[in-house]
Design a protein around this nucleic acid. Structure first.
Length: 208
DNA sequence: CTCTGGATGATCT
DNA sequence: GATCATCCAGAGA
């Protein structure tokens, strides 16, 4: 049987804003679950993109983003959610593409087991934290290589090139003028756009 | 569909 | 101490 073409490290060794639209329509595979990517966001370089986790330089959390391209960067946020990126550019640079949404095309049973029995098909991976859950990404997957022939890989999608649109990134408080969110036009699995809303934490009961 | 607010803890200043 | 690349339930239209 023919070998399945898999995206190599060179595919990711480019600016994230170029890799991001190229990922749309491609298939991200993690173990038994395969997902057709429908929405992604590019995050840029230290000192250049204020919305990027690498804006202020390397920390323990974002260290994987400064490593070689083609690896998975998983981070924990809002006290309960994981989100996943694919590292771009070259080692030491600090850039990545956030995986925001997709359509589950294989392993729907596993994805639903992780997401819950009542979740509709199109909502299984509609949103970055939902996508991470559906694919089973957690802390232990931070740094996982998508180019080493292991359980994580990116493969070609169908022959038809998707219609790609772009606009401002979702849920961020800075860098809102950079149109580095990319999605497939009219795809039902694309997450609804939400502007960032600053919110105060619920007031703690005053001493009693 | 839209809007609102709560959950919950790691991370960084 | 404030923020956070979010999700969910509930109310209203």
């Amino acid at each position: 049987m023919p070998a399945v073409p898999v995206f190599d490290r060179g595919f990711f060794a480019r600016p994230a804003e170029e890799v991001a639209p190229d990922l749309l329509g491609k298939v991200l595979v993690h173990g038994p679950v395969a997902l057709r990517l429908t929405e992604v966001e590019a995050y840029g370089l230290p000192g250049e993109d204020p919305a990027s986790h690498t804006y202020r330089g390397m920390t323990r959390r974002n260290a994987v983003m400064f490593g070689p391209p083609g690896h998975l960067y998983v981070y924990f946020t809002y006290g309960m959610h994981f989100c996943a990126n694919l590292v771009c550019r070259g080692e030491g640079e600090g850039s990545a593409v956030l995986l925001r949404a997709g359509e589950i095309i294989e392993g729907a049973a596993e994805a639903r087991e992780r997401r819950g029995p009542a979740v509709r098909d199109r909502d299984l991976a509609r949103g970055p934290a939902r996508l991470a859950t559906a694919l089973g990404f957690g802390r232990e997957h931070n740094g996982l290589d998508a180019c080493d022939g292991g359980p994580l890989s990116v493969r070609p999608g169908g022959a038809d090139e998707p219609v790609v649109l772009s606009g401002p990134r979702t849920g961020i408080s800075t860098g809102v003028d950079t149109p580095w969110r990319f999605w497939i036009d009219k795809d039902p699995t694309v997450s609804p756009y939400r502007a960032h809303v600053p919110r105060r934490r619920a007031a703690v009961a005053p001493h009693g």
